[in-house]
Amino acid sequence: MTIARALIWIVLIAAIALGFDPRENVERPPRTSGPYTVLEGDFHVHSFPGDGGLLPWDIVREARRRGLDVIALTNHNSMWSWRFAQRFAPESPSGVIVLPGVELTSAGFHMTTIDVRMPVPWRQPPAQAVAAVHAQGGIAIAAHPRSPRPSKWDDAAIDVLDGFEAASSNDMAAENVAFSRRALIRHPTIASIGSSDFHYFAPLGVSRTFVFATERSAAAVLDAIRKGRTVACDGLGDAHGPAELTSVVSADCRRVAVSDPVGWRRRDGVATAAAWLALVALVVLGARE
C-alpha cells in the first residue's frame, strides 16, 4: 500500500506537470472590422479573495486561454481582489486588459461597475448608484437584470445605464427578453453585454461581449461600451446587439460556444483526468496506518 501511495503521488505530480503549457503568452493577431478593432471581453468576473475560485493572475491566464482580450474583476461590493492583484502582480502577464470593477450588490438590483476607484454605497436607488459610478468616471451595467426579484430597475435607472447584461451564464438571453425590450425602447444606444458571472465553474467567458473599439486599449473599450458598440454573445452561440455589428461577429459567437480553449491539447485532457483519478485514489486509500 505504501508503494501504491507513492506511485499515485508521482502520477498526480506528473499529471499536473504535464498540464504546463509554455505557449501561454502567445499574442493573438488583432481582428478588425472597418475602423474598429474587435475585442472579446468578459466584464463580470469574480476572483479570489472574494467569492471567486481563482487568483486574479490565474483569471488573466484563463482569460487568454479562453480567447478573451479584456476582463473586469467585479467582486461583490469590494475591490480587495483588484488591490491584491495590483500589489502582487500589477502587470497583466499575457496582454489581457484587466479593468478594476465591483459588482454593486444591493437590495433589489445588482450592477457591474467598471473602471471605478471604490465601490459606491449599496443603500441607494439604482439611478443614484449609476450617477455615483459616473461621478467616478466609471461605467454602470445592469447585472443579470432578471434577478434578484422583485427588481428595482426603474425607467430612471435604465435611462442612464451604460449597458445591461443581455446574456450571462445564469440568465440566458431568452430569459432576459422582457428587460432587453424595455431597455432598448427607452435607451436605444444602451450597450448589450454578455458576461459569464464567473465564480467557480468553467468556462470563463462562456457568455462574452464583442467590443468594437477604436484601438486595443482600456480607454477605447470603455468608450465603445459608452457608445453602445457591443454585441452580447450567449453561451449557446446567439448574438444580441445592433444588427450591423451582430452580423460581423455572429459566426464567432457560434464558434465560441463550441470550441475548445485556445491552445487546447489532447494531453491537457489526459493530464486533468489523471490528476483527478490520482486524487480520488489517494483519498480512498487514505494515510498509512
Binding site: A15, I16, A17, G19, F20, D21, G53, L54, L55, W57, D58, R61, E62, R65, F198, Y200, F201, A202, P203, L204, P261, D268, G269, A271, T272, A275
Partner: peptide, 14 residues
C-alpha cells in the same frame, strides 16, 4: 472546476 484543466502554476495558486 474553474478551468477544466490542471497546470503547475494554477494548482499551486489554488
Amino acid at each position: 472546476s474553474a478551468t477544466r484543466h490542471v497546470a503547475p502554476g494554477l494548482v499551486l495558486g489554488t
